[in-house]
Design a protein around this nucleic acid. Structure first.
Lengths: 114, 114
DNA sequence: CATTGCCGCTACGTTTTGTGTAGCACTGAG
DNA sequence: CTCAGTGCTACACAAAACGTAGCGGCAATG
């Protein structure tokens, strides 16, 4: 038996404890550019404009909105030396995305095989 | 020394191999409701309407659009017994989100402590 | 055979979100 | 002073999502 979806919460009953936090982060990551911004800030702080370029010219309107939100959520802070940088918590989040990258490879391979 | 953001690709150089697949899945997951739909489909298939309700009354327009896309991407298929269900690949993706759920808890705790 | 009920959708007008370009106020260097 | 770089903000436009209404199909029921 394939062990997929084992010991995950039951679908019908929306299990209160783990959901709200997960729901909130999913909502946060579901707004455009959010994950990309975190991704581009890996390793070194970037200035507003540098970050904008790194994100392929995202509009400053949205960039600013995202940075505000990420700041409120404790994921991004102003760097003392100028620019923006990730908090340790955000860096952890980035680590989580490594398995996702591996999965993405398999996914793309599966797409090619269709 | 904190090991955050260790052995991740360098920021400036956008490392070609792993990026495109990751970029595509991030884009896919960055459209509203996508992850929620996958989440609600965990465990058991749901009908269009049931899924719509499970997602808190998302508009059928968007739901249909997402289901089409998820179908094309090989993550969701029609269930022989009616309704929609996840492919094994999508179930794996769901597994990846378990660390994310754990992270979300720590994140919320950190928010409370601010 | 008509009614009822559920199925997967589609149409359409409104609202929300993101885009793209321009430019402002501030600061430090020359 | 000028000049370049900083972090933004304004505004008009386009795209995406919302919410409600309802259509055609199909199976069970009276």
């Amino acid at each position: 038996m394939p062990s997929s979806s084992a010991d995950l919460p039951k679908p019908g009953t929306t299990p209160a404890p783990t959901r709200p936090a997960l729901a909130e982060i999913v909502e946060l990551l579901s707004s455009k550019w959010t994950m990309r911004i975190i991704w581009e800030l890996r390793g070194a702080p970037l200035t507003f404009r540098a970050l904008q370029q790194a994100c392929g010219g995202v509009s400053p309107t949205v960039l600013n909105r995202r940075l505000k939100r990420l700041g409120e959520e404790g994921l991004v802070v102003r760097d003392p030396a100028g620019g923006y940088t990730l908090t340790p918590l955000a860096a952890e989040l980035l680590q989580i995305y490594q398995p996702l990258a591996a999965w993405a490879q398999r996914w793309q391979a599966a797409k090619g095989a269709r």
